[in-house]
Design a protein around this nucleic acid. Sequence first.
DNA 1: CCCGTTGTTCGATGATCGTCGAATATCGAA
DNA 2: TTCGATATTCGACGATCATCGAACAACGGG
Lengths: 106, 106
Amino acid sequence: MQDPYPHPEIEAVPLTEVLHALSDPLRLRILATLAADGERGWGAFAAGVSPSTLSHHMKVLRQAGLVRHRREGTRCVVTLRDEIGARFPGLLDTVLALEAQAEPAS
Amino acid sequence: MQDPYPHPEIEAVPLTEVLHALSDPLRLRILATLAADGERGWGAFAAGVSPSTLSHHMKVLRQAGLVRHRREGTRCVVTLRDEIGARFPGLLDTVLALEAQAEPAS
DNA sequence: CCCGTTGTTCGATGATCGTCGAATATCGAA
DNA sequence: TTCGATATTCGACGATCATCGAACAACGGG
């Protein structure tokens, strides 16, 4: 799990992979929290799922170019990757806006 | 396969289901064609996949509230369901615009 | 009334997914 | 250096998915 997490080239991410990454309630919730509150530690999303499950979803988001992971001592910080807005303009904004309005309390 | 195809209430469709329906290249291509050229018969999309596979994807799109199916004699016509624009404003437009620009020749 | 066209349904198969627990690795603190 | 906190990896499991071929149903035309 060494520091250099594998982050893909944003240009190499296909649209369908991003859409698939967005099509899960937990992952959507993670992105919404990040968009609203800025970067967070792992633990902010640990409720309800096991550590390994959370790690899996984080990897999906990272491989889809949606988030960036950074090591900070013993814990890990996740950030929204804003290049996604350049690669697929409007996509994340639109989806997060809809998620906020349609699934208010998830 | 009787005429009354089961079309879901648009309000009952969750966002994640729509996103999942959009996260497939063939389904995305079907929607793009519909958006560009208006309603089409089944056969317009039969290239490359077996009839049963196509039928499966059509069902996914229908259940996600994205298209409407109408029987016309022995063949079947598929239309974009525009209520999706009221349920999830901007979503389909955004995705189709990105698909057109990012995956020009699929 | 039979037949061809068209789409659906039904297994079946191999792939992927979401989830978990257990084992492991890394780091900071005592 | 030992320990606890934190995150990853590794099977494993059941569920879902994308795909196909074969069998079936519905319709229109000869």
